[in-house]
């Protein structure tokens, strides 16, 4: 997120990024069979050392966004600039030297480690591939990163099957950080873990971020994890960013109806004990198919505020405050309206 008035050069700048998956992969019966618009024109910035959380329900395109940034997928259109280099259109081969700088932590610690490799091999492989440490120092570096993530260096000879889920995820984190990346894309890094272990891993990630100054793109459906970890948050719905803000602003004053609905679904112990009844917003139905999203605002089919204009005009992402932007025709008219709001959110620009 840019912080006015003097935004530092972003480490990652994504502009109008799109990824369409053909709904029918066979070439024969081609013509128009439609496409899943997994990511449909999103833009965001991430400054060096910053943390951006992307939240949304399943199918919102948040995982695809992460995979696009890590270039596991080829964007259909749009731009991904990483440290000043356009990486959106690079081929596999051209991408290879940049790979070290963008690492990824996956959701499933059972799947992200090769079951036939010891922990030591898994950690040494990227070090050797990028020749980051002299050949003699690989073993020492491996032990170093194991200690960094709070694992016993004696674990080098273990196989993933010998480790618990939390330990495996620590190894996955160690592997991502061993090559000293500048950006880590963490796709649901704790969702597959026990709640008690989740907190440990989130805290570990936070410590490592502070110590190493690595930027994080955290993808999660868990609002609490994102709140704990991220400076900035983007909310995705059906391939679009519907609201983006700094953490405090988003969690205290969610402006988009969808964000409000998400927030209201989070159980809150304090509110529960104080007897204050939380107004829970129930969204009717399911998200529409991303093959043929609704006209105008994509959320209108489930929105309790939808008016005629919503079906006709696609609301742009409008700036409410310098750090808070919302894509809703009525964002300014509900909830806490900021005094310094500019533009007229009711009218599409």
């Amino acid at each position: 997120m840019t912080h006015d008035p003097a935004p530092p050069d972003p480490l990652l700048a994504v502009r109008d990024l799109r990824k369409l998956f053909p709904a029918r992969p066979t070439a024969r019966r081609s013509r128009f069979q439609g496409a899943v618009r997994a990511v449909d024109g999103i833009s965001f910035d991430l400054r060096p050392g910053g943390t951006l959380g992307i939240v949304g329900e399943s199918g919102s395109g948040k995982t695809t966004t992460g995979r696009l940034v890590a270039r596991l997928e080829q964007p259909t259109s749009g731009s991904i600039r990483f440290a000043g280099t356009e990486i959106g259109a690079l081929s596999r081969k051209e991408m290879r030297p940049l790979r070290r700088q963008i690492q990824m932590v996956f959701q499933d610690p059972y799947g992200s480690l090769n079951p036939r490799q010891t922990v030591g091999t898994a950690l040494a492989t990227p070090l050797r591939a990028h020749a980051l440490v002299p050949a003699g120092g690989v073993g020492r570096r491996v032990r170093e990163v194991l200690e960094l993530v709070g694992l016993d260096p004696r674990h080098v000879d273990r196989y993933p099957a010998d480790l618990s889920g939390g330990q495996r995820q620590r190894v996955a984190v160690a592997r991502a950080l061993a090559v000293e990346p500048r950006l880590v894309v963490a796709d649901e890094p704790v969702s597959a873990l026990d709640v008690s272990v989740q907190a440990q891993v989130v805290n570990l990630l936070q410590d490592l971020r502070r110590e190493l100054g690595v930027a994080f793109l955290l993808i999660s459906h868990d609002l609490a994890v994102v709140r704990h970890f991220c400076d900035d948050v983007a909310v995705m719905y059906l391939g679009r960013i519907v609201e983006t803000a700094d953490r405090d602003s988003l969690y205290t004053r969610p402006l988009h109806p969808y964000t409000q609905a998400l927030m209201s679904a989070v159980p809150d112990v304090r509110r529960g004990t104080s007897g204050e009844r939380l107004h829970r917003i129930r969204l009717p139905g399911e998200p529409p198919s991303p093959v043929s999203p609704p006209s105008g605002c994509r959320f209108r089919t489930r929105c309790w505020r939808a008016q005629e204009v919503c079906a006709q005009v696609d609301p742009p992402l409008l700036e409410i405050t310098p750090t808070h932007r919302v894509a809703c025709h009525f964002a300014g008219e509900f909830g806490a309206v900021p005094a310094d709001r500019e533009g007229a959110p009711g009218q599409p620009g």
């Binding site: 890590a70 596991l72 596999r92 991408m95 290879r96 030297p97 940049l98 790979r99 070290r100 963008i102 690492q103 990824m104 996956f106 959701q107 499933d108 799947g111 992200s112 480690l113 090769n114 079951p115 036939r116 490799q117 492989t125 990227p126 591939a129 990028h130 996955a172 592997r175 090559v179």
Partner: peptide, 28 residues
């Protein structure tokens, strides 16, 4: 589609390495 192969791609390992060191041992 397993994540460890994706992880190997993200790590920038060569296709040869992925085929011989990541995939082949799992096919023994």
């Amino acid at each position: 589609e397993r994540e460890f192969v994706q992880a190997a791609v993200v790590m920038g390992l060569s296709t040869r390495h992925i085929l011989l060191k990541e995939l082949l041992p799992n096919l023994v």
